[in-house]
Structures are given as structure tokens and as C-alpha cells.
Amino acid sequence: MSTPLQFPRIGSGVFQLMRRDLLLAIKRPGDVINPLFFFAMIAALFPLALGPDIRQLAAIGPGITWVAALLSMLLALNSLFLNDFEDGSLEQLILSPQPLPVMALGKTVVHWLLTGLPLILVSPLVVWSYGLDDAVVTVMLGTLLPGTLSLSLLGSIGAALTVGLQKSSALLSLLVLPLAMPVLIFGARTVSLAVAGDDISAGLYFLWGYCMLALTLAPFATAAALRISNE
């Protein structure tokens, strides 16, 4: 080997990986659409179970929307590394000279674009249907944006730990749900406060702070977990 070892640029690899993941997702739209339908169905279940009283629905609407978002994010998580694990490209990714945390972050961000973002875009419909006004919709969007991103990042750790295990989806929920509680608490509570007309800045600060923390720490944990799972 006489050629000097070239340091790969961080950007080149990760953007190619993200482009590939996006293209793959377009060819298999089920992975994106199924969690969305799941989200809508959970939101429809509660009025069916509790009765159509609009005042009651308005009171529980923020919480239900958030729980539905959490569950459908969880449902989608399983597919984050699974395809790449099965066809062996995950192993290639780990062996490649590209920094694994950056690659894991890239994959997680694409996953969020495909599951979290559509969910955010659909959420106003749910909020409106529960009889809440536009101001609440704005707050819901403002909390779901950092919230779903945090959930994707947290979930990527769980998905990396359980990839390759048998019957991993129930285990994945068991691992991720307790970790996701702060996001749920602050997300749902902030929207409830907005419904009551209270100050919501504390919740938004927390959610963005948590999101930044997850953005800086989670990729490293995910990378470590991927290495361990693929030994």
C-alpha cells in the first residue's frame, strides 16, 4: 500500500447514505405510510371508546395526540436498522472508515424525515378534529418538532441494541418507553397548558434542550450499540 491513506470527508459519506435511504424509502412507501395510518387510527379510537362529547375530547386531545405520536414512532423504529442488518450493509457501514456516530445520526435523521415529519404534518387534522383551535395547533407543531426528533434519536439507541434479536419489537418498546417519558410528559403537558391559556415557555425550552442533548449524545450511544450488536 504505497498510496497515502486519505482522510474521508465526513460529508460525502453521510449524504450519500442519506440519499440512498431516502431513495429506498420511496420505493417502499409502506414503511412510511403504515405508522401514519396507525397514528390516525389511535386518534380515532378514543372518541369511539369515550363517546363523542366534544368538551371531553378537547380536554384529553393533547394527551391522546402525543401518546398516538409516541406509539407510532415506536412502531416505525423497528425498521430503522433492520433492512440494512439483513442484507449485510450495516456491517459494511461499521467497517467503513467513515465515523459511525455521524452515519448513525444520518440514518436517524432520514428515519425522522420519513416517520416524524409526516406525523407532524398530519397532527393538525387530529387536533382540529378534537375541537381545539389554531393556537393549540401551533403549539402542538412546536412541541412535536423537537419531541419526535428526540424520540427518533432515543429510539435509535434502542433499535441499535435490539437489531438482530428475535422478536425484538416488544423488547424495543420496553427499552425505549421509560426513556421517552420526559418527552411525553413535557410535550403533552405543554399543549395542555396552551389549551388552558397558560405560559408554555418552560415546556418548549425543556423540549428543545432535551432535543439538543439527544442530538449530541445519542449518536455516540447508537454507534456503540451498533458495534456491539454486530460483533
Binding site: L161, T162, L171, L174, L177, P178
Partner: peptide, 12 residues
């Protein structure tokens, strides 16, 4: 719940 998740991962 955190303990249960930890133990479940170990068992799996």
C-alpha cells in the same frame, strides 16, 4: 420500568 427493560435486554 428501567430495571425491567435492562433485565429484558439481558435475557434476550
Amino acid at each position: 420500568f428501567l430495571y425491567i427493560g435492562y433485565i429484558a435486554l439481558r435475557v434476550a
